[in-house]
Design a protein around this nucleic acid. Structure first.
Length: 235
DNA sequence: CACCAGGCAAGTA
DNA sequence: TACTTGCATGGT
């Protein structure tokens, strides 16, 4: 009996904090949206282009990625059939502007091999797989980590998966919304536990965080004076 | 000139 | 397990 009452109180208390956290996460989104407006991130014309972009943008400015993709597009190589047959040294040359071009050429080849073996070289088949299965298969590829995998899931496959990047970690920890030592999965949970699983919301939210990071949360500027999240703190 | 960008894996102790 | 290093171009 007493245990029941305690349990109820504990649950009520827990519900209260979950509610507060939800408000907080939605509040962050609203602040960013009000300040930056809709981003409408469509990082490619086709799912395949989005996938290539996701790998090429690893620790790299998007502007450089556009150049690399432009090179491939310019010679009509931007399809799985053409690109997966291209010799790795040649692929590296085309994507040179994206930096780390030898590493990334190898990573793309690893990804192509997985698509060939697991999804019969079919984009359609791959994009029709379940979110969990596709994520596992992407993570099994050498050179595809959690952020790249989740970017593909969200931006190419339109799945409700929150993408975490260095800006996300930096912004949240500087505002004491998460612990500094939170890892990728913990940060992802922070969002996914408190938001409706809506791909377009996750898409916009991630884009807004990147936008805010670029302007107000540089590595070199420990504190920023007029960031749109000023005053927002953890509970 | 220095520092940074929408990471990831391999090496070291 | 926890920390460090290599990978590389192009912009500020």
């Amino acid at each position: 009996m007493r245990a029941g009452v305690t349990g109820r109180r504990w649950r009520a208390r827990e519900q209260y904090f979950i509610g507060k956290m939800q408000e907080q996460v939605e509040h962050i989104y609203k602040r960013l949206y009000d300040h930056f407006g809709p981003q409408n991130w469509w990082p490619g014309e086709t799912p395949f282009e989005v996938i290539i972009g996701a790998v090429l943008t690893q620790n790299t400015n998007w502007k450089n990625v556009e150049r690399a993709i432009g090179n491939l597009k310019g010679v009509g190589l931007l399809s799985f059939a053409r690109l997966s047959e291209l010799p790795v040294a040649l692929l590296a040359e085309y994507i040179r502007p994206a930096g780390y071009y030898n590493i990334k050429a190898g990573r793309l080849r690893n990804l192509f091999a997985m698509i060939r073996e697991t999804y019969n070289s079919s984009m359609e088949e791959m994009l029709a797989d379940s979110t969990d299965s596709l994520r596992r298969n992407l993570l099994s590829v050498k050179g595809i980590g959690p952020e790249t995998a989740d970017s593909i899931l969200l931006y190419a496959a339109n799945r409700p998966v929150f993408v975490v990047d260095t800006y996300t970690h930096r912004i949240l920890s500087r505002h004491d919304l998460i612990c500094e030592d939170f890892g990728y999965d913990e940060i992802q949970e922070f969002f996914m536990d408190h938001l409706d699983p809506d791909p377009s919301l996750f898409n916009e939210f991630h884009a807004l965080l990147v936008c805010a990071g670029k302007e107000f949360c540089k590595k070199s500027k420990p504190r920023c004076s007029d960031c749109p999240l000023k005053g927002v703190e953890g509970i």
